[in-house]
């Protein structure tokens, strides 16, 4: 499995977590991801993911004026989105535990 494929589902979850903290727009999310250390993925990757999450009803968006430039599209979580985030957290902690257990053996 390539790195990007493995990352996709994980980035979905991270985006949900970032949006959960505060309503934000695409560029902010990309900045935030790279600050957390996801700097190998290209920034545009988030848009197809956001489009899908919006279609699935996990996030909603609203256009707002900005002082510095063109209108930005701000995203926030729906109740389904919050639910999905909780499920992702559970899945992730479970997965993290298992993967750690496997790969740490013998170190």
């Amino acid at each position: 499995m390539s790195q990007t494929q493995m990352m996709k589902g994980i980035i979905d979850g991270c985006l949900l977590a970032i949006i959960a903290k505060k309503e934000c727009y695409g560029y902010e999310m990309a900045e935030s991801l790279s600050e957390y250390g996801f700097d190998t993925i290209s920034e545009g990757t988030i848009y197809p993911l956001l489009m899908r999450m919006q279609r699935e009803g996990l996030v909603t968006s609203v256009l707002r004026n900005s002082t510095a430039g063109p209108k930005r599209k701000y995203y926030s979580l729906t109740s389904e989105g919050k639910q999905e985030l909780t499920e992702f957290q559970t899945r992730w902690f479970q997965l993290e535990k298992c993967v750690n257990a496997v790969i740490k053996e013998g170190i």
Partner: peptide, 9 residues
């Protein structure tokens, strides 16, 4: 338009 905003920033 969303991508334009991103590219602009």
């Amino acid at each position: 338009e969303e991508l334009e905003v991103h590219l602009y920033e």
